[in-house]
Amino acid sequence: MKITISDLVKTYPGQARRATDDVSLEIADGEFLVLVGPSGCGKTTLLRMVAGLETPDSGTIHIGDRDVTGVAARHRGISMVFQSYAIFPHMKVRDNIGFGLAMRKVDPAEIRRRVDQAAELLQLTEVLDRHPAQLSGGQRQRVAVARAVVVDSGVLLMDEPLSNLDALLRLQFRAELKKIVREIGTTTLYVTHDQAEAMSLGDRVAVMRDGRIAQLGPPLEVYDAPSDQFVGGFLGSPPMNFVPGPALGHASDVLIGVRAEKVAVGTERADDARPATVEVVEPTGASMLLTVLIDGHRLKVSAPPTFTATPEQQIWLRFDPTSLRFYDPETGLALLR
């Protein structure tokens, strides 16, 4: 089901700033959209308003063609994975997964069949008759996802579902989650503060800041051409480099953004290359991450893993003109070239 968010404004009582500031967003049927941004940017508030757990001050939310703005959460036909999982500790895994179906008065035999199916999908068959306290963190996470997918709702909401897992598990489950959601094909709105998660999961990502959407688009597009300095600095690891124009031989009224991997690194002097001094060398295995100084400006560049360099050494950087992005130094907004 399509979700249409129009002009949503929400201010929490006792706070001067708007949590969401006139946000509009359309999520196509079957799309996986990720809301990403630093904490306090309004992404969770937006998700909770779609869920019906917060009431907007103004604006509307449509699910499909139905205006659900004033509709209670339970009547919106949605399902959700919570950050803390919100698995009920007093119920067995089976009853947790089947909770939504039981609330919708589905026939018990049918509940059983669908719970078994969901449990198989998420590898929970073994633990169906246990209580959540006997599960590992990763298993609890799976129960939360199983509970959300089993109801077969038109919209799936996820609020930082991976943030409580340790790094290794998070990486594993991320791919699995992507596969599951693609198989069930539900429209999904996913909130995270982790830019890598946003990049890897979303059909489109919406980068949020201060209650507004700073940029919306397919992950690679947003990565490659950030619409402003904030987005470039938030998305990607390492974040995009920003240096004043003159440092790279451009006009002084521009700020240049360039990704670390778009800079070619060499030890030999070349006419089209610019000298830089190595400050720090960090091998990451897949590449050699260098912090260099160019004309007094600090830059992160990534060299092949075989590249050898030592601090204080002079190296030569070549910038492909097509990989440079230009920004207004005052506003931080992208300049059209």
Binding site: A73, M80, F82, F88, F99
Partner: peptide, 15 residues
């Protein structure tokens, strides 16, 4: 009792 538990119940259709 975490508030999220109550919210989860409501999202999944409980009054």
């Amino acid at each position: 009792v975490p508030r999220e538990h109550e919210e989860a119940a409501q999202v999944f259709g409980a009054s």
